[in-house]
Amino acid sequence: MGGQRNDEGLSSGPPEGVRMKANGFYEEVIVAGFGGQGIILAGRLLAQTAMKAGKEVTYMPAYGPEMRGGTANSMVVIADEPIASPLVSKPNSLIGMNEASVNKFAPRVKGGGLVIMNSSLIDSEPEVEETTDVLAVPADEIAVELGSQKCANMVAMGAYLQKRGLFGADSAAACLADVLAARYHKTLPMNSEALRRGAEFAKTHS
């Protein structure tokens, strides 16, 4: 063979139907929304919860130009084995907090995947594979009921945890103090409650 070098990179994608992993789970999550919605915090909470549960985990925030123009996202990979790439191109799960991020990432979610979308801010139906499970959570409305729109991220995370079943909302709540700066610790009860309410919503709306 004369050489495999391809200056454009390989454009062909992976062969269809190749399973990501034969053994164990390999969960790739994108949390996305706009700046100020606590996207980074939600991703870090998930990573911290996974770490405390003894899983392999990586967390990667968007730090590049994609952060500008109002969208923020963080990528979390949780597995039973050492993690290859912390970058997620085709997630198993998406937590989409605004319309732009759902439009961008929902089409990339793998078949059989999960989309949690914040229906308080999103009217349209996401474009997903037929086998993907979509749960519309009125996260902002539930958050406002709890005292602040700011905990909508935790409502959505609670719904994700309930649907995915990897970790309980309680285990995530127990990690809140690790990821929230001390000056926000007065919001711990509200955020814990938001996680619980999100989980409860997912349980009753599946």
Binding site: V57, T58, Y59, Y63, P86
Partner: peptide
């Protein structure tokens, strides 16, 4: 940039 920005245990 990945190693610098990412978190893992």
């Amino acid at each position: 940039g990945i190693l610098g920005q990412m978190m893992e245990p």
